[in-house]
C-alpha cells in the first residue's frame, strides 16, 4: 500500500441520496478506505441531495434550492468526496451555474489519485471484474483511467476489459422512466457486453448506473453482481468484501 502524499487531510463525505438511502455499504466503504489512507472523515448531517434529478428533468428552481443547501452544508471543507461521478459533475459544473459556490468536490477516484496521490490502496478482491466508465465520470469529470489504475493495483482482482465500454448504459435519471423502452434497449447491449467478459462482478463509480445495469442483470438471473468501486477498494485480506456486509 502506498502512503498518501497529503498528511491526514480533513475531508467531508457527501454520500449522495441514492447511496445514503439504498447503498449504505458503499458509503461505509468510502469511510473505511479513506480512514485507512489516513484521512479523517466527517459526515455533515445536513446533507441531502445535490439536485441533479430536479435539474436534469427540467426543475432548475428546485435544484437551485438544493445547491444552496449543499453550499451551506459543506462550506469550509477543503475537500468533499462523493462516491458518484454524476453527483460530483452536478456539483462542480452545474451548481456554479445556479449561482452557488460549492466547496471543492471530488469523485472518489479523483480524490485518491489526484489529491492523495495513491493508486495502490492495499485492497484485496479475488474476483473476475469488469469496469463500466459511467458517462458523467468519463465526459463531465474526465476521470480517464484513474478508476482502472486503482483496480489494477487490487490484489487478487482479475480485471477484464468491457467491450464498447464508453457507451451509455441507458440510465439517464428520469430518462429510464420517461423513455423506458429506449433505456432498456441501451441496457440490453450493455448487459450483453458485460456477459461477454465472463465477469462475476461489474463495477463502476456510480450507484445509480449500477442500480440500472444491476437491475437488468438481476431480472435476467445472469448471476453477475454489481459492486461499487469503493467497496472493492475498501476490501482487504483481513476484512474482505462479502455480499452479507451490504
Amino acid at each position: 500500500m502506498q502512503k498518501a502524499v497529503v498528511e491526514s487531510p480533513k475531508v467531508a463525505l457527501f454520500a449522495t441520496c441514492v447511496t445514503d438511502t439504498l447503498y449504505p455499504a458503499t458509503a461505509r466503504a468510502v469511510v473505511t478506505l479513506l480512514e485507512r489512507l489516513g484521512c479523517s472523515v466527517e459526515f455533515p448531517l445536513d446533507q441531502t441531495c445535490c439536485g441533479q434529478m430536479h435539474f436534469n428533468t427540467g426543475y432548475p428552481d428546485h435544484a437551485r434550492g438544493l445547491a444552496g443547501s449543499y453550499e451551506r452544508t459543506f462550506a469550509g471543507y477543503d475537500a468533499v468526496i462523493a462516491p458518484s461521478g454524476s453527483c460530483t459533475g452536478m456539483v462542480r459544473d452545474i451548481h456554479p451555474q445556479l449561482g452557488t459556490t460549492p466547496a471543492p468536490t471530488y469523485e472518489l477516484s479523483e480524490f485518491l489519485v489526484d489529491v492523495l496521490g495513491v493508486t495502490d490502496v492495499g485492497a484485496y478482491f479475488p474476483h473476475r471484474v469488469t469496469y463500466h466508465p459511467t458517462c458523467h465520470s468519463l465526459r463531465m469529470l474526465g476521470v480517464g483511467d484513474k478508476p482502472l489504475s486503482l483496480l489494477r493495483a487490487v490484489r487478487g482482482l482479475d480485471l477484464v476489459a468491457l467491450p464498447d465500454a464508453e457507451s451509455c448504459c441507458g440510465f439517464g435519471g428520469t430518462f429510464a422512466l420517461k423513455n423506458a423502452d429506449t433505456s432498456t434497449a441501451m441496457l440490453s447491449d450493455k448487459m450483453r457486453h458485460v456477459l461477454d467478459t465472463g465477469s462475476e462482478v461489474l463495477t463502476a463509480g456510480d450507484n445509480s448506473c449500477l442500480m440500472h445495469i444491476g437491475g437488468g442483470l438481476s431480472r435476467l438471473r445472469t448471476g453477475v453482481r454489481t459492486v461499487h468501486l469503493a467497496e472493492i477498494l475498501a476490501s482487504t485480506e483481513e476484512d474482505p468484501w462479502s455480499p452479507a456486509t451490504r
Binding site: L22, Y23, P24, A25, S183, T184, G215, G216, R219
Partner: peptide, 12 residues
C-alpha cells in the same frame, strides 16, 4: 416503468 425491465434494489 422501472420494473418493466429491471429489478429494483431492496432498501436496506
Amino acid at each position: 416503468a422501472w420494473t418493466s425491465s429491471r429489478d429494483a434494489p431492496v432498501p436496506p
